Simulated scan of single mutants.
Amino acid sequence: MPHIVIDETRCKGCGLCTIACPKTLVRMSETPNSIGFTVAVFSGADKCTGCALCAEMCPDVAITVFK
């Protein structure tokens, strides 16, 4: 089943991945991570197609796509 993993230590919270996901499965966290960034989180793995648009948009290379 396709899904993504977001590395919270690399994510700086720019939000570009949330715009890129055609299924709106990536959103911004409500609480900051250990270094103070509000990071992206993935939800809805059952709907992910593995298109990798989120990973392509990520300037911090924080998203890994599994197909």
Rank of each mutant, 00 (worst) to 15 (best):
A45F: 10
E8T: 06
M57G: 02
T64C: 06
L25G: 04
S34E: 12
C11R: 01
C51Y: 03
T31V: 11
T49Y: 09
R27T: 13
N33W: 00
D60L: 08
C11L: 05
P32A: 15
I19Q: 10
M28I: 15
C17R: 01
V65Y: 01
C14T: 03
A45Q: 13
T18H: 08
K23L: 11
R10T: 07
C51V: 04
D46F: 10
C58I: 00
I4H: 04
V26I: 15
A45Y: 08
F66D: 00
M28H: 00
S43N: 12
G13Y: 06
M1C: 08
D7V: 10
F37D: 02
P59I: 08
K23Y: 11
A45R: 15
K47D: 15
K12V: 03
R10G: 02
T31G: 08
A62E: 00
D7E: 12
K67F: 08
V61D: 12
C14I: 02
C14W: 04
V65L: 08
H3Y: 15
C51H: 07
T24S: 15
A20C: 00
T18F: 07
P22A: 12
C51E: 02
F37Q: 00
T64Q: 10
T31S: 09
V41F: 02
E8D: 12
A52K: 06
V39Q: 01
L16S: 13
D46W: 10
P32H: 04
P22L: 05
G44Y: 05
P59Y: 11
G50Y: 03
A20V: 06
G44N: 06
L16Y: 11
A62P: 01
A20I: 00
A55R: 03
S43Y: 14
R27M: 11
T31E: 15
K12A: 03
T18A: 13
F37Y: 15
C11N: 04
F42W: 12
C51M: 04
A52E: 13
V65T: 13
P32W: 06
C58W: 08
T38M: 15
P2E: 11
P22N: 07
H3T: 05
D60G: 03
S43W: 09
I6E: 03
V65G: 09
V5N: 14
T24H: 14
N33V: 09
E56V: 11
T64V: 12
D7Y: 09
V26C: 05
C48Q: 08
S43P: 02
C21P: 00
F37S: 03
F42H: 10
V39S: 00
G36T: 08
C11Q: 04
K47W: 10
K67N: 13
E30H: 13
S34D: 14
I35V: 13
T18R: 08
T49R: 11
C51L: 02
T9H: 10
C14N: 02
T49Q: 13
H3D: 05
I19D: 08
C54M: 08
A45G: 14
N33F: 13
C51S: 11
K23C: 06
G15D: 05
A52N: 02
M1N: 09
M57T: 04
D60E: 14
V61K: 15
V41R: 06
